[in-house]
Computed example of a mutant assay.
Amino acid sequence: MNAKYYYLVDNDIGKIKIVQKNGLKNFNIRLKPFEVVTISSPASASKKQISNVIARKKKWILEKQAFNKSIEQKRTVFEHRTTIKTFFNQFTIEQKDTDRMRLKGKRPEYVIAVPENFDIKNPAFQSGIKNIIDYVLKDEASRYLPERTKELARRYKFRYNNLTFRNNKTRWGSCSTRGNISLNIQLMRLPAMMIDYVIIHELCHTIHPNHGQGFKKLLYSILPEAPHIEKEMKNFRTQIY
């Protein structure tokens, strides 16, 4: 489905992404934590029609934004003695007599040493800690996810094109119309069954590009426990450790 997009700003809502798609008949509004408000509209829709949709749905959008904000405010703040567990490793953050931030230890137990005379909650240190963890997550993802994806594809007779890794703010995975699968390195913070769920979810998209009944039937035939996993995954966020 071909699409083009642009941005507009509403005084109350803020930045809104407008995606106009050929073949789309109705307006769809997407609101997720850590994401800009996105409205998908028919390609033929005028700016006045889009403005009318925004005006009509504004109260609901603002309520949803407030809810999302409560989730965004839970974004992890790393502190002294914070422990972060990944699929293969564990990190403990400690303030030590060091001149700069360092990664110490070895697999599976690491220490992220932060200078004790600096404010650990300083945004620069928070970003640095996250970058160190993400560096190890990327290594874990490259070691584990390719073989696991191949194994599940063989088991359930799927074929995909390329597999890549990203560090997205919201999506755990995606699949293009050409069968290219992208997986988030943050998957390596999830339990094994959830990692498998995301991989199988994207493999199903190689056959059904949308989330229609055909997609759900295929996914649930492979993973009857998928509804339970989907419910559990709502407790996990890429930006919340």
Rank of each mutant, 00 (worst) to 15 (best):
E63S: 07
A226T: 08
Y7W: 05
C175K: 03
L203H: 05
S46M: 04
P108H: 02
K21Q: 07
N168P: 10
D119M: 01
N161W: 08
F87R: 10
R81F: 09
E79H: 11
E35K: 15
V53E: 03
E230S: 14
K21P: 04
L8Y: 02
H205M: 09
Y110L: 01
N26T: 13
D134L: 14
F91I: 04
S174E: 02
P123E: 09
I112S: 02
T177C: 03
F67C: 02
R154P: 01
K217V: 05
M233T: 01
I133K: 02
I240D: 02
R81K: 15
L190V: 03
E72Y: 04
I229T: 08
L137M: 08
D99P: 11
N168M: 11
K138W: 09
K17Q: 11
I18E: 00
A192P: 00
G14T: 03
F236Y: 14
T177Y: 07
E202Q: 11
T164D: 07
Y160G: 13
P224L: 08
Q239W: 00
V37R: 02
Y220P: 06
I16D: 04
N22P: 01
Q239C: 07
K21V: 06
S142A: 15
L145D: 06
T206M: 10
Q49V: 02
R56L: 07
K96V: 12
G173T: 02
M188H: 13
K21A: 09
N184V: 08
K58N: 05
T92Q: 13
E79Q: 13
Y197H: 12
T38P: 01
E35P: 09
K157S: 15
D119G: 03
R166N: 15
E151F: 15
D10W: 00
F78D: 00
D97G: 10
I240S: 01
S127L: 12
